[in-house]
Every structure is written in structure tokens, then in C-alpha cells.
């Protein structure tokens, strides 16, 4: 933060303007994030039925209910598995895309624009489009038959539905995170790259290890953290493509929360489930921060 300059007296008018300028942000974030979070915590300790206006405290029984729900932990394991696979692959793939497309040639600009299309497209459109891609008569099978793979209805298979959704999300988020790396790459002065080349850092691995990674460490950190937060909150694609099925094989925490609240009217349990999810996301992102700061000292 910039220090106050000199001993110049801050006018009352400037103070007042400052407060007025930040007021709208605090009203909205105060109500819809800070208050809502506390309110959620309160709801998680209640039996809450907003339609019949029956509200009474039930202690920790919502938490007990959720914690003893096999389906909830099943969905949580799914989310962790999904996060592990998707974040790992997309973090590397996005980096590869960024290095590949970080040139100013017309071909590079044109192809980069095409690859970026899924990142600006509605998740609903993508999901419905890929229901077809993964269908028995879809694009994926049309391609795979040439490799001798037996056609499959991917989204109706308990084995393949979840990997299919993972694949779809890597496909759409890799270009999104590519942009973050590109921003990072473009902030590196080109003189540093040239001097690295003169120093004989020529092969790709060395270049990554000694040059890109140290320069882009914080971008990598952001990509991983945003990836974890996004993956743990997976909803749109599952809801539209499989709704948790077949046989709960794509069930994830947000589907559980959604169903508890909006299918079973069990708002207290939904709030409790969302708090448990919050704690797990928090632990994962903090662990990440620890990891990255250790890398810095290494």
C-alpha cells in the first residue's frame, strides 16, 4: 500500500468521497457474501423450511446427517478424484498451449482464437453439444472406430461417464488458463529469454526448470488454486449431461447440495454440506500455498 505522502492533511471531503465510493461494494458484498455466509452457517444449525416458515434449531444434527451420508462422501471422493486428474492435466496442458501460441504470427493468432472458443462459450451449450459428441452415434465414436475401438454410449456407462466429463472440462478450461499463462509470459522481458539462450539453456526441460517455472511461479500457483476451487464446485456439466448418473457414477458435492435443498427441501442439510465442502476447499488451497512457498525456498 502506498504511504500517505508527506504531512499533507487529508481533507474531510476526500475521506467522505472515499467512504461513498466503497459503500456500494460493501453493501452488496456485505449482504450477499459476508452476511450470506453467516446466515448459511445459522441455517446449517436449523431445521429450515422457507415455504412453510418452520424454523427451529436442531444443533449439529444436520452435520451428523450429512457426515453419515454415504452418498455425500462418495460425491466428495469423486470431486477429489476429479480435481486431482483435471487440475494436474489442465495446468500442464494450459502451459503447453501458452508456449505454443505465444507467437505473433498470423497462423498462431488465428489458431489461438479458435482454441479459445470454448472458454467464452456457455457451459450449457458446451454440455449439450458434448452429449452428442459422447453419444453412441457421436463424434467421438466416429473418430475412435478408425482406431478399432468398439463404439460406446459414453455417458450411459458407469465406467466412462465421469472420465468423459473430466475430458470435456480439460478441453474447455485448458484454453481459459492458457490466457493466464500468456499474460505471465508477456510480462517477462524478452532480453531475459535471449540471455538464457546465450547461457546455453537450450533444451525444453531446462528452459522450463530454470527459466519459465521460476518466472511464472505465481501464475502456476493461481492456475492451480483457481483450478482446485473450480473443480471442487463442478456442477453445470454434470447437472446437464448426467444429473449424477448413471448409478451415481458422476455424483459430485454440488449435485448433493442441490438435491438436498431443491429436490428434498432439506435446506439445513444442504447448508451443512456446503460448509463441509468449504472447509475441504480451504484446506486444499492452503496446502497449495504451503507447497508453493516451500518451492520458493528450495
Amino acid at each position: 500500500m502506498r504511504h500517505l505522502r508527506g504531512h499533507e492533511r487529508v481533507s474531510g471531503l476526500e475521506q467522505l468521497t472515499g467512504y461513498l465510493f466503497v459503500l456500494p461494494t460493501f453493501l452488496i458484498l456485505g449482504v450477499f457474501v459476508l452476511f450470506a455466509a453467516v446466515y448459511s452457517l445459522w441455517i446449517s444449525l436449523m431445521h429450515y423450511d422457507p415455504f412453510f416458515h418452520t424454523v427451529y434449531p436442531v444443533g449439529l444434527s444436520n452435520y451428523k446427517y450429512v457426515a453419515s451420508s454415504q452418498l455425500y462422501w462418495f460425491s466428495m471422493l469423486h470431486a477429489l478424484e476429479y480435481t486431482g486428474v483435471v487440475v494436474t492435466i489442465q495446468t500442464f496442458l494450459a502451459f503447453f498451449f501458452a508456449v505454443l501460441f505465444n507467437e505473433k504470427t498470423p497462423v498462431s493468432r488465428f489458431t489461438r482464437a479458435i482454441v479459445f472458443i470454448p472458454a467464452v462459450t456457455s457451459s450449457a451449450v458446451i454440455s449439450v453439444l458434448f452429449i452428442w459428441v459422447f453419444s453412441a452415434q457421436g463424434l467421438l465414436n466416429a473418430f475412435l472406430v478408425h482406431l478399432g475401438v468398439h463404439p460406446e454410449n459414453w455417458l450411459e456407462s458407469t465406467t466412462w461417464a465421469f472420465p468423459a466429463i473430466m475430458g470435456l472440462n480439460i478441453f474447455t478450461t485448458a484454453p481459459y488458463f492458457m490466457i493466464m499463462y500468456l499474460a505471465g509470459l508477456q510480462s517477462i522481458p524478452s532480453s531475459i529469454l535471449e540471455s538464457a539462450e546465450l547461457d546455453g539453456v537450450r533444451n525444453a526441460f531446462q528452459r522450463f526448470r530454470y527459466f519459465y517455472f521460476p518466472m511464472l511461479k505465481f501464475t502456476v500457483f493461481f492456475v492451480v488454486v483457481l483450478g482446485i476451487i473450480g473443480s471442487m464446485q463442478l456442477f453445470d456439466q454434470v447437472f446437464i449431461m448426467t444429473d449424477g448418473g448413471p448409478g451415481n457414477s458422476t455424483y459430485v458435492p454440488l449435485i448433493y447440495i442441490y438435491n438436498q435443498a431443491f429436490v428434498f427441501d432439506n435446506f439445513g442439510a444442504a447448508a451443512a454440506a456446503s460448509f463441509i465442502l468449504f472447509v475441504i476447499i480451504l484446506i486444499l488451497t492452503l496446502a497449495q500455498r504451503r507447497l508453493i512457498s516451500e518451492v520458493r525456498w528450495a
Partner: peptide, 8 residues
């Protein structure tokens, strides 16, 4: 994260 506040 957004899921924490959606119910409230």
C-alpha cells in the same frame, strides 16, 4: 466459494 452462500 459460491456454494457456501447459495442456500442463504
Amino acid at each position: 466459494p459460491f456454494p457456501v452462500v447459495i442456500i442463504a
